[in-house]
């Protein structure tokens, strides 16, 4: 699924990384706990989170997530956005709750990190 399709499906706003919208995303992991993301995450995944501090961006970089989707309308501060831009990690934000966002993406075939091998 292209990042652009994810953006359209969730009526998301792109915070940074517009030039990455054509990239393909095959799997996702949703959590507000970065400890869990570090334990379960896989390279190339979409990180879906409501945690909008700079640690979400650092975690995405460490785990090599392809993009971050913030739910519940959350947005990181300028430092987080600057770090994401530097690390080439596109950031999106949607007003959907995490459950809704995950449901919609799963329905459209975006796999869980657990199912993607």
């Amino acid at each position: 699924m292209k990042l652009k399709e994810i953006k359209d499906l969730l009526q998301a706003e792109i915070i940074c990384g517009e030039d990455h919208l054509e990239e393909e995303i095959e799997m996702a992991c949703a959590s507000d706990l970065m400890s869990d993301v570090l334990a379960l995450g896989k390279p190339g995944m979409l990180l879906i989170t409501g945690l909008a501090n700079v640690q979400s961006v650092r975690t995405a970089n460490i785990i090599e997530a392809k993009a971050i989707l913030y739910v519940r309308g959350k947005k990181p501060d300028q430092e987080g956005i600057a770090l994401a831009a530097k690390q080439n990690i596109p950031l999106l934000t949607t007003n959907y709750l995490m459950y809704q966002a995950c449901g919609l993406l799963y329905q459209r075939g975006l796999k869980s990190v657990r199912d993607a091998e």
């Binding site: 706990l33 970065m34 400890s35 570090l38 945690l51 501090n53 640690q55 979400s56």
Partner: peptide, 10 residues
């Protein structure tokens, strides 16, 4: 926990 850590996974 607010910072997203402390899940006992470290």
């Amino acid at each position: 926990r607010e910072m997203g850590f402390g899940a006992g996974m470290g």
